[in-house]
Amino acid sequence: MNSAPDPRIAIVGAGLGGLTCARVLQQHGRSVTVFERDASAGARPQGGTLDLHADTGQAALRAAGLLGRFQALARPEADEWHVRDFASAALLAHQGPPDAGGRPEIDRGQLRGLLLDSLTGGTVRWDRAVTAAAPLPDGTCRLLFGDGTAEDFDVVVGADGAWSRVRRALSHATPRYTGVTFVETGFDDCDTRHPDLARLVGSGSMLAKGVGRSLVAQRNSNGHIRAYIAFRAPEDWHVAAGIDLGDERAVLTWLLRMFDGWDESLRYLLRNSDHAFINRSLFVLPVPHTWQHVPGVTLLGDAAHLMPPVGLGANLAMLDGSDLAHALVTESSVDDAVRVYESIMLPRSIEAATGSAQGLDHLVPAATS
């Protein structure tokens, strides 16, 4: 067991990876504090549906003692894809849910809620924005907060996402734009209000793609379908087009031109959504993203290996959290634990980031010369 009876452990960020780490630590009787800049759990939407893989996300939930509760919420029938021709909407390929196992889907908000509910009361300190992490000469780390206060810990875990403040203590890397943007929207009560779209999507997800652009629609719980209009363009595409992103009609007109020639049943995703368009430029960290070990601080999830959203990021973040917690419980010192964790996580993340980049190219094909 760790030589320190109860090391001071801080996790920055109450996302899936950070919460998994906290849960596994508490399963083993360790104290941990999670700092989150959001004012509450419901301060902002948590995003769409996730498929949890057996060897990553599900393995992490098993280590956290939450796999059974996850299975009660999950939608195994949603592990299904319909690939459709962009010009006719004809079905080109169908991958149905497997008879057993597979990658059951769950709404990100439901999964986060499951993790939050599993923690000891007061574990998460809401409305505590971290501005920096400063490693100290004695191998500990000081967290600096937006209100001007500071606290010292034996280890600080940066689980604070793409624009991590903790990352600066380890790496000068900054996320770069991939060249791909998603414009997100959504549809409510689909089986009743949007039955034709519901049939196109089925129980899981639908993909239609052309050169440099794709449409993706995913079933969420409670009859909701979330849609992503994906395209290759400069990050400031709307500026070049003279479009105010708050002008829904102007955005729609531009998108309809981009998807000219596509089947009208697919263009329904553009014309008839129940929610506003949300512009989401996709960023990634360099591959490989590594750092020299620094005592008292480490990273997990997007803070460590930001990659395109093609199904691996959340799963890896949760596995990172589980692996780090396990090392902190079993290794002889905090520093040994972090070294062991990084020796596993960094090579794994390089492989996953490479695969995710290829996945994005498959999802939104670039023009060939």
Rank of each mutant, 00 (worst) to 15 (best):
Ala4Arg: 05
Gly121Pro: 07
Pro308Asn: 08
His28Pro: 01
Met206Asn: 06
Ile229Val: 14
Tyr177Arg: 03
Ala54Gly: 00
Phe153Met: 06
Gly210Leu: 09
Val310Trp: 04
Arg69Ile: 14
Ala357Thr: 08
Asp320Tyr: 06
Ala367Phe: 08
Ser40Met: 07
Arg23Phe: 14
His194Glu: 12
Gly148Pro: 04
Leu66Asp: 02
Asp361Thr: 07
Met206His: 08
Leu282Trp: 05
Pro135Met: 09
Ile344Gly: 06
Ser203Tyr: 10
Ala10Phe: 06
Gly122Val: 08
Leu312Thr: 08
Trp163Ala: 14
Val156Met: 13
Arg75Ser: 10
Gly65Ile: 08
Val211Trp: 05
Ser349Asp: 08
Ser88Pro: 05
Arg271Val: 12
Gly18Ala: 15
Ala10Leu: 12
Pro175Arg: 02
Leu346Phe: 13
Leu285Met: 14
Asp335Ile: 07
Asp6Thr: 13
Pro295Gly: 02
Thr192Val: 10
Ala303Met: 10
Leu319Ile: 10
Leu19Ser: 15
Asp160Val: 11
Leu143Met: 14
Ser203Gln: 08
Arg8Lys: 13
Pro288Glu: 15
Leu66Asn: 00
Met345Lys: 06
Gly313Gln: 11
Ile11Thr: 09
Val310Ala: 07
Gly15Gln: 11
Leu170Met: 14
Leu266His: 01
Ala198Ile: 11
Arg44Pro: 01
Arg199Ala: 15
Asp79Ala: 08
Arg62Glu: 11
Ala60Asn: 07
Val201His: 10
Gly179Thr: 06
His326Leu: 15
Val310Glu: 06
Cys141Asn: 13
Val32Glu: 11
Gln46Gly: 12
Ala250Gln: 12
Asp85Glu: 14
Asp160Met: 06
Ala39Asn: 04
Gly359Pro: 02
Met318Arg: 04
Val251Ala: 12
Gly311Thr: 00
Val211Gln: 13
Arg167Ile: 02
Thr181Pro: 07
Thr49Tyr: 10
Pro7Val: 05
Ser203Pro: 08
Val251Gly: 08
Tyr177Gly: 14
Gly301Met: 03
Glu264Ala: 02
Ile344Pro: 02
Asp274Asn: 09
Leu170Arg: 00
Ser164Asp: 02
Arg37Cys: 15
His53Trp: 04
Leu119Glu: 09
Arg84Cys: 02
Gly109His: 09
Ser332Lys: 07
Ser3Gly: 15
Leu143Ser: 09
Thr140His: 03
Gly101Phe: 01
Thr140Val: 07
Asp138Gln: 11
